[in-house]
Nucleic acid binder design. Structure first.
Lengths: 212, 212, 212, 212
DNA sequence: CATGAATGAGCATTCATTCAT
DNA sequence: TATGAATGAATGCTCATTCAT
């Protein structure tokens, strides 16, 4: 059926716009990126974008959902790996997955960070906010559960597992953000984001395990 | 001499503009803040601002330097306190100072974070960038030194002290940023920025000390 | 012959577009009506419209000709009615016909008024303007003739019959337009367009007949 | 005081924009007139307009109020003239005033007509609509009163004076509008708006007076 | 013939910066 | 030195029209 091909082409075009927007937003930031710039990158006309998206804000919101879905999938895959049974191994695997995510799809990572900063409160509908919150909670729950398991088994010291999960999350965000900017990289020659991130996780896990 | 008084008045006027801009940027964000809004807050005419600053960007850059100088001063004061001799105590004192800085002058803290994200590459001249880099390095050096002392004295395990300093810096940034947005606070009921930050430092110091 | 059927189908399709446009223009106004909205109403594709009309303006111009032709036909029918022989009866019959036209096909009436205001000078070709002028003249001639008859028979006072025809025409337009807007209807509670129109005609005929 | 001069210059500038807009709207219609075109006509920059008016709609609304105020003043002056005591003389004087208004300030006249057609429902605030309605009612009341006087004195036949006032109003609008467009003027050689309007008033007054 | 995806000119509005006073 | 009126470049979005299928 041609309707199938039509739908596929439409989805491809939409995805093309999203990726063009992702690159453009990453390069210049949301506000500085014009709709025309996105169109040029996607090699289409300005008006065409509005055949696929309601507004510039809608593009960003859609990208955000994509980013969070992707992250959640990668975290889940890492946590579900049967080869990593021990809670500390699970946490490290998920940390690695987060690191991979931040390094392989840095635009998505930046987008999530921008959302955390509240950079586009107006651009997301209530429904989208709920979906985003749910996805975020799911992701954080995965980490929380691993920590709770570690505490229950005596591997980690006692504490609030959700708070510890937030500590991990925040610390990794911080490490990854720190080296995102060239000026900061110059301050730490010989250390890249990956190394800093791994060192952070090492130290935190060490602290967790020796806390008892 | 009247030239002295004139210079003093000029500096006061400049400072007034800077503080007005700081408050305005914090309230509405840099892009959404108009130069006119800054002028109104400073209770001067719009054109007067351009007698003291080249551009809106220049105001932001100057604020950045102020923020960094203030942070450096507070970290130095915390590290120099003779009551805290042990490296881990020094680190904790500096962490507390950073936390205080972030909480008491959140506008400055946000400004530094925004700069780290590369939000205004165009707004800073090369000279300003060098001053910023130097100030940042000085601040990081203070932390690095304390860690190096701890390693030398056997209190901490061996490692790259500058990298560890960066880990601390990044982790604290991450913890503080995480709870800056209401949506994230809702995800962590009962935990505020301070608690999260303290937990992060606890865990990292724990990790450092037990690493031997 | 199939060419006949084809021509008929083409005419039907064209008529369908015209009626869709008429309804759409009446509902939302010419500027606010998009070509796509007309296409949807006509249940055809947007591009198809351009197989039958040069432009959006051309649709409006064609509607205008239809409206004028329809009005002329109705006026002629009213004037030709053998039951109304006396000039004043003829005039009243034609006025009633105009009132019916304005009330039964308000879209056409509004279109004619819009044209009178010069709302779309650019949309009509010279040829169309000539056809429009001719149709208008024919309609006005019908009224003029009845008035001239009345003057010749001594029923009306002497005067320029064409000018009197224009007076009648303008006055009816004015009465009908006045109550087209809700705000004006609120100013005249208890009076509708029909009553106002009839009162206008009464008064004018009275004036004509008593002018001698 | 310089503040007086300042205020005067500001008012002059505002008035300049209003008159530029009046001319532009009259020439091309409201929708087809761009803000830039108004600015060029007023020989100022595009942005300057927004120092004096909230929006394009606000300019139109202000013009409307000016137009109605002007009309009301002229009608009142005509009706209050002690030289015209008899109701029919008063009515004729007010009709002359309306004719003068339409001919001397045709842009204002067109603007009022456009408002009557409901061409800009969105552009006027509720408060403005009330002011407009009140001004309209005042104007119509002047005519109604003269007709009521005529009926009371036996000069005119009995009837609903407000309805008769509306008949007069509508008929004059119709006569004036009819000849506003060149194509219509061509249909009536030798007759101009003034003649048509006067003929309309003559006929209506004749009708009123002979109605008894 | 019919379609609808693609296009880009056009528009109202904002705001950093300039400059006459 | 201080002012704020004036400016016009920049931007998100609409819609009449075209054209490949």
């Amino acid at each position: 059926m041609s309707s199938q091909r039509r739908a596929r082409e439409r989805a491809q075009r939409k995805e093309g716009i999203l990726q063009a927007a992702r690159a453009a937003f990453a390069e210049s930031g949301y506000r500085r990126t014009t709709v025309e710039a996105v169109a040029e990158r996607a090699e289409i006309g300005k008006g065409t974008i509005y055949l696929y998206f309601e507004s510039k804000d809608a593009i960003q919101a859609e990208l955000l959902l994509q980013a969070l879905a992707e992250l959640q999938a990668q975290l889940k895959a890492a946590g579900d790996n049967p080869a990593t049974q021990r809670p500390d191994q699970k946490l490290r695997a998920m940390a690695d997955a987060y690191l991979d995510f931040a390094q392989n799809i840095p635009d998505y990572f930046r987008l999530l960070n921008a959302y955390d900063r509240g950079d586009f409160e107006q651009g997301t509908s209530t429904q989208q906010q709920e979906r985003l919150l749910e996805a975020s909670n799911n992701a954080l729950d995965l980490v929380t559960q691993a920590i709770a398991d570690g505490m229950a088994s005596g591997l980690f010291g006692q504490g609030d597992p959700r708070k510890m999960a937030a500590v991990l999350w925040g610390a990794m965000n911080g490490a990854l953000s720190l080296l995102a900017h060239p000026i900061r990289r110059n301050m730490l020659p010989g250390t890249d984001g990956q190394a800093l991130c791994l060192a952070t996780v090492d130290l935190l896990l060490q602290g967790l395990m020796d806390q008892k």
